[in-house]
Amino acid sequence: MKFDELLMIPGPVQVHSRILNAMAKPLIGHRTPEFSDIMKNCTLGLKELFGTDGDVYLISGSGTAGMEAAISSFSKVSRITCIDNGKFGDRLCRIASRYTEVDALRFEWGESIDLEKVKESLENGSEAVAFVHNETSTGILNPAREIAKIAKKHSALVIMDGITSVGGDEVKMDEWGIDVAIVGSQKCLGIPPGLAAVAVNERAWEFYNEKAPFYLDLMAYKKKLKDWQTPYTPAVPLFVALNEAIEMIKEEGLENRIQRHRKFSRAVREWAVNAGLELFPRLNEYSSYSNTVTAIKMPEGITDKELRGTLKQEYSITISGGQEHLKGKIFRIGTMGNIGKREVVATLMAVEDILTRKGCAVPAINHALEVLK
């Protein structure tokens, strides 16, 4: 018997039936008051999630489109410091290198950021810094507040990839001193892939580059925002989905939502450690474990195919493996979006079953259940 698939990866995530039903409604025109109302509600709701009074621009494209829009639109700098301690930090470096000189601060994937190196880079002339807040490739939460504090001492622009933290963890752009931040729709917001949002404060426009790519030039989005419109044809069903997701977040309460994400990730970590497994990230005093995905070292005696392949075949549950050079070395369990205790427990019990059969773990589900009470 084939069961419905359960996605427990760091995006795309499970989509709630309320959101699916909203998307199933008849299509509306995008140059209509009805769409503008949806656009306004989405924009104002996202401002709260970003923790900003600045503008939020919605782009029909993936999170990477948001990354490139942010980097390219504000690339009038002689050099930018890009921090890479995972796949998406590396992606920021690659994007930025197309627009200006990059000082790439590269750390072993999963290692914590050395803030002294950030300070040195800015002292040596970088005018901006870009980093990933929540690095899902390694399960580490980077110190956004501390990075921004260093940057502000040098009047540097601060660009933050919040693609997998906004809507699921604490993000306070204005309070922390973040000038530009990005989120993707298929992560903590809990809707299908295809939308990116870029939050921008007024100071960022001092760094505006009018040679940004035509479609990703945020000035075009800024000009249309006053009418609660987008400059180009938007992915209307995804705006409808986001509108419903924003309503669901309001009903749950943002703080409650953040605490739910934190509880689920803590339950996964407690289970992993007590099962005899090792968490992958190497923390320092400034970093912490991700609150939306947990990266765990693959134990000896089982392969990635045996674990994730069996999990999908026998339980119809999908979790993530490692990326790039981490393939086969780690597995990752996402706990983001509109999921509940049932999904977390089912996933952990299924993974535990496979690992214990192979002699690679000991039963530890009770430790997770204790956290989830």
Rank of each mutant, 00 (worst) to 15 (best):
N284G: 10
R257S: 03
G334W: 03
E306W: 06
K312L: 15
E285P: 08
S287A: 15
T303C: 09
I296E: 00
M298R: 00
W271T: 07
T292L: 03
I302S: 01
E300H: 00
G322T: 08
L311T: 08
D304Q: 10
A295D: 05
N291G: 12
E324S: 13
E300G: 11
I296F: 01
L283V: 06
G328M: 02
E278M: 01
R266Q: 14
P281T: 01
I333G: 01
E300W: 00
I258L: 11
E306S: 11
I333A: 00
E255H: 10
V293L: 09
I302N: 00
K327Y: 10
E314Y: 09
N274W: 02
E314K: 15
T335K: 02
R282I: 13
N274F: 05
L307I: 01
E255T: 12
G301M: 04
S316I: 03
Y289W: 05
G337N: 06
R260D: 06
N291D: 14
H325S: 12
H261V: 02
H261Q: 02
S288T: 12
S320P: 01
K312T: 12
R332S: 05
E300N: 10
S287T: 15
E324T: 09
G328W: 09
S320K: 08
E285R: 11
R269L: 07
M336H: 05
M336K: 03
N291R: 08
S316L: 10
Q259F: 14
N291K: 08
Q259K: 15
R262D: 07
K329G: 04
F264Q: 06
G322R: 01
A272Y: 10
N274I: 06
E270Q: 12
E285F: 05
G276V: 02
F264P: 01
E255S: 13
I258Y: 07
S316R: 13
